[in-house]
Design a binder for these strands. Structure first.
Length: 159
DNA sequence: GCCAACGTTGGC
DNA sequence: GCCAACGTTGGC
């Protein structure tokens, strides 16, 4: 299995909301690279780091996992949605959403400055300058380190 | 609220 | 196919 990171603004959809909902469709991704990751690479059972962006402070809040195959994102056809895409064809939807389930909320958020200061997380995509992708891969060693920093209940997956 | 970095759009 | 203009992201 592989591991991933998704970003969300906690004011829009945070880890607490995912905990409450149990699972959710990851709507609103309108970037081709992120879409391709969700469509082609994220598999059921993959673990996903849940990052709070535009937060005070920003940081890693918990874990989710992929619970099902991706399906078309309904907001692309919803005229009232911010994510409406008039050029997407219903017969061949342009945008998909990953199906994510709640795994755990960390006892404490791992703040961005801690992530940046950790030598073992050097190279993590999230920390690259100008990195704006909302869905990113996380290497197995980086993932294990994040679990360690968080004191996570979840065990690092076998490679 | 500012602004750097980036992706996308559209004129040519 | 280039690239300037624009909109968005997201840290600060």
């Amino acid at each position: 299995m592989r591991t991933w990171l998704v970003k969300s603004e906690p004011d829009v959809y945070g880890i607490d909301q995912l905990k409450k909902d149990g699972r959710t469709g990851w709507t609103g991704v309108r970037n081709y690279q992120a879409r391709n990751t969700m469509r082609d690479d994220m598999k059921e059972g993959d673990l996903v780091v849940f990052y709070h962006s535009n937060a005070e402070p920003p940081g890693i809040a918990g874990l989710a996992k992929v619970v099902d195959a991706p399906i078309p994102d309904p907001t692309q056809f919803d005229k009232k949605s911010d994510y409406f895409d008039a050029t997407s064809d219903k017969a061949e939807p342009r945008w998909v959403m990953a199906q994510l389930g709640f795994v755990e909320k960390f006892k404490a958020l791992i703040p961005l400055d801690v992530l940046k200061a950790d030598p073992k997380l050097a190279g993590l995509a999230l920390l690259q300058k100008g990195q704006r992708l909302s869905v990113q891969p996380v290497s197995a060693p980086h993932f294990a380190r994040i679990l360690e920093l968080a004191g996570a209940k979840t065990k690092s997956p076998a490679r």
